[in-house]
Nucleic acid binder design. Sequence first.
DNA 1: CTCTTGAAGGTTTTT
DNA 2: CCTTCAAGAG
Length: 740
Amino acid sequence: MNISEGMNPRQMEAVEYTEGPLLILAGAGSGKTRVLTHRIAYLIEEKQVPPYQIMAITFTNKAAQEMRERVDRIVSFGAEQVWVSTFHSSCVRILRRYADRIGYGNNFTIYDTEDSKTLMKAIIKKLNLDTKTFKDRSLLSAISAAKNEMISPEQYRKDAGIDWKLRKIADVYDEYQEQLRSNNAMDFDDLLVNAVELFTQCPEVLESYQERLRYLMVDEYQDTNTVQFRFISLLAQKYRNLCVVGDDDQSIYKFRGANIENILSFEKIFPDAKVVKLEQNYRSTGNILSAANEVIANNKGRKEKKLWTENGDGPLVNYRQFLTGFEEAEYIAGEISKKVRTEHSRYRDFAVLYRTNAQSRLFEEKFLMANIPYKIVGGINFYARKEIKDLLSYLKVLDNAEDDLAVQRIINIPKRGIGAASIGKAQEWADFHGISFFDALLEAEMIPTMGRAASKIRSFTSLIEVMRAKAEYLSVKEILELVIEETGYVAELQAEDTEEAQARIENIDELISKIVTYQDETENPTLGGFLQDVALVSDIDSVDEDSDYVLLMTLHSAKGLEFPHVFLAGMEDGIFPSYLTITSDDPGDLEEERRLCYVGITRAMKELTMTSAKQRMIRGETQYNKTSRFVREIPRELVDMGRTFEEVKQKPQVDPQPKSGLYGAMKSLYQTNSFQPRQFKVTKADHLDYEVGDTVRHVKFGVGIVKAIVEGGKDFEVTVEFEKAGVKKMFASFAKLKKI
DNA sequence: CTCTTGAAGGTTTTT
DNA sequence: CCTTCAAGAG
C-alpha cells in the first residue's frame, strides 16, 4: 500500500520527518491517528526500521489496540512487534522484569483507587489522625499530586517547612509508601514513579531500553503529566527521536496532574524541534466546526490555530431546552428512535455525552423504556463490584502472599467468625515482628491474646495454602473455579435467592468468561498476567465497534472518539460548567471546562444537539439552572433553537407516557426491520431459553410470565405479563429476559 | 461477632 | 439521592 495515499501535504510532512524531536499540533478530527499509523508504517517500510524499535504510547488500551490493527493493515509484516500501549501498561511491563532492582518483588500487585482508600483508612487509624481534618480522599489526592510531580516523601517533608498540617501529610505519605512496599504493591501513580526510579537508579536498564526503543511516539501529549514526561524524555534522551502529537485545546486532565506546559513549551525543551500543525478537519461539518472554534476562542493562553474544513456547512447546531431532566432524556430517546426509523442511521451512530456519571441514570431509564439498545461507559467499573473484588482478592492472595490488603479483605468472606478484633491482634503481631499479615496468621496460635479465633484462622490459612499448592498446576479459569468451589461463594449467593444475588452470580459468570477470553488471546496466560490486565483496563476498552448500541458516557471518556450524531446533555451553568469551576478563583479551571466542551462539540460528525433542563433534581433537591454559558458563546446564527418549550408541550414530539413511548419505540424497531434492507444488527437467537408459561425477569419491569412468543423476521417478539408493570411486548434480543 | 437501624454527610472528570 | 459510618441489640 502506498503510504502517502489520501494524505495531505502537512500530514505527509509529519510522516516523513522521522529523525529528531517533532511536535505535531493536531486539531480535533485532523487525522492524527492516521498520521501516527502511517508514520509507523513509513518507518518500517521506507526507513527499514525494525518494528520492535518503535514505541507508541496511547491514552487507552482501546486506542493501542486500534492503532496496532491499523498499522497491521498497511504494513506487510511486523506490526505485532511494535510496542503500542498506554503509559501505565508500558511501565508495568518494564517493572515486571526489573522491579527487584528497586526493592519490590517482580510479582507486585497493582492497587486500584479503592484499595488505596482502604489502605489510607488503615493508616489514618494507625497514626491516630483526626478524621475531620484529614480525609482519606484529600490525603490521597495530595499524595497523588506529589507523585505526579515526582516529589518523594522526604522532599515533601522538606517543602512542608513548619506547616503543621503539611508535615502530618508527609507522615502519612511516608507511611503509605512504606505499607505499599511491604505489601509488595504499587498504586497507579507508583507505576510511573517507580519506572522512572528504576531508570534513574539503574542506568544499564535505561540504556537497554534506549537502545531498543529508538523511535518514540506519544499520542494525546497534552494530557501527559510530569512523571510521564520524565519517563518519555529519559527514553528519548539517547536517540532523540521523539514525536509527540497533541492539541492544547483538548487538554482536560489537569485534575490528574496533566501539565499543559509539556505541550506549550515543547519547543523550549527541545529547541531543535520541528513543529507541524494540522488544521484541516475531516470529521465535522462546517457549522459544527464553527461552533467549536467560537467556543474555544474564549480561552486565553492557547496556541493560536483555527480549524477549517472542506466539508459542507451541514445543518445548524441544535439547542433544546426542557423543563426537567426527565423530559430532556425523553426527547433524546425519542429523537434517536425517530432517526433510526426514518433515516439510515443505526444506534451506534449516536452518543449521549454528559458532564458527570450521575447523569446517566435518567437516560438509562428512558432508553430501557424505549427499547433502545445502549451501553453506559464508566461509572462503577465492572472490576470494582463487590463480588468481583472478593474473588479477585482470593486470586491476588494466591498470587502474592504479601498483599495484606487482599488477605484482610477475604479473611472473613464468607463469614468465618474472624472479626475486626482478631484481625487487629494479628496486625499488631505482624507489625511487632516485622512480618507480613499472612505470616502472622500462620503463627496465630503463638499470639497470646488471640483466644479461640486461632483455630478459625488456622483453617483459613490451610485453605489458602492448599489452594496455592493446587494453583501451581491449574489454568487461571480453573483456579477461579477452585476458589468458588472451596469457599462456596456462589453456593451462598444461590441460597440467598434474591434478585441481587442472582445479578452477582451473573457478574461472576462474566468474570469467568473474561478469563477464558484472556486465556484464549494471550500467548502465555498466567494468574499474575490476568490480574495485571484487570488492574489497568478502563471501561472504554470494552466498547465494541461492531455491535449496534447507543453510547452513553462522560465527556472525558469520549475523548478520541467520533459519532455521526452527538447529544450534549445537561448544558446548564452549574452542571456544565460545573458549580465548582464557576465558583473557583482560578480562571484556569473554567478554561479547562471550556476545553472539555470543545472536545464534546468536536466529537460530532454530522449533527450536534445540545440540551438542557430548566430544573433538575440534584441529590434529591430541585435546582434551577441557566443555559450554559458555553451554549451562549455560540453565535446565534449557527444555532437552531427549535420550537420553544411551551410549543413542544402542546404538541409533543415524543409520546409523554412511558407506555405509549414504549409502544412507539417498538413500532419503530419493527418498521426499521421491515423496510430497511440493510442488516439491522440484531442477533436473533436460534432459540430462546424460555417459553410460553415460564416465569422470567426483566431488568426494568421485574418478574412476569411469558404470554406469547411470536417469531418475526429478525427477532422474536415476546409478550410478558409483569407482576407490577402489566403486559409488555418486547424484542427478545433487547429485552434480555432471564428465565427464573 | 453479626446484623439491623438510623443519622450524617457528600459529589466532577480517570489510568 | 445514595452511600457510608456509628451505635445498639441479638
